[in-house]
């Protein structure tokens, strides 16, 4: 438990390591697609790194990167097919970014640095920590962008095909400057992430002072 929590904070892929930016900026236009992207990422990370950790002793060293990419690619393809079948609207929303998990630096980086060396229990804990950290940061970015940009928060819209519920809420009465569509547009993603990272730095520094 402690290990998972530590990975979420100290090795947060987005705010600390600055990896996996493409999905973080592209699909966070609303809250729902952000947390679904995070969940897909978490599943791919856990399954593929678990597999890699299981067969790490059989894979010859000089072909390990292609083998890892193949394993990750297979997991992503299976996930794509499942989403296509059950929630086609959502998979349309995530678009190519779902397939692009294959070349996500976080997944491959963790495969090389953790899964290829450690046993499955450690790898699994690490994957959950990294995946949750990524999901939480995506949810943060997604909610900020949607609240500021569209004045709504979407808990369930494309998923309603599966669950039957729809949950989209208005957050505050409209004002003259807000909601501002710039936050939902592509450029706004950079702005929100920039400020969030600066904020994260402030908190991290305070943590260090306390521990000293």
């Amino acid at each position: 438990m402690k290990q998972i929590f530590r990975t979420i904070i100290n090795e947060n892929p987005l705010f600390v390591l600055m990896l996996g930016l493409c999905p973080a900026l592209a699909v966070t236009t609303n809250f729902e697609s952000s947390y679904m992207m995070g969940l897909c990422f978490l599943i791919v990370l856990c399954v593929s790194n678990g597999l890699i950790s299981l067969i790490r002793k059989i894979i010859p060293d000089n072909v390990r990167i292609p083998v890892y990419i193949l394993i990750i690619g297979t997991v992503v393809t299976i996930l794509e097919l499942l989403l296509n079948k059950y929630v086609p609207k959502l998979s349309e929303q995530l678009g190519v970014y779902l397939s692009l998990i294959v070349v996500n630096c976080v997944v491959l980086g963790r495969a090389l640095s953790v899964a290829s060396k450690r046993d499955i229990v450690y790898t699994f804990k690490d994957s959950i920590g990294i995946g949750l950290g990524f999901t939480i940061s995506l949810m943060l970015i997604g909610s900020i962008r949607e609240i500021l940009g569209a004045n709504t928060i979407t808990f369930m819209s494309s998923l309603s095909e599966l669950t039957g519920y729809r949950a989209i809420y208005k957050v505050y009465p409209d004002m003259s400057l807000l909601p501002n569509p710039i936050f939902v547009s592509g450029a706004g993603a950079f702005l929100v992430l920039g400020f969030l990272i600066a904020l994260f730095k402030v908190f991290k520094k305070e943590d260090n002072h306390e521990s000293n």
Binding site: M18, A187, G188, F190, L191, L193, G194, F195, I197, A198, K201
Partner: peptide, 9 residues
């Protein structure tokens, strides 16, 4: 990174 992201914005 933050200033780089704002430049990108």
């Amino acid at each position: 990174y933050p200033i780089a992201l704002i430049t990108a914005f």
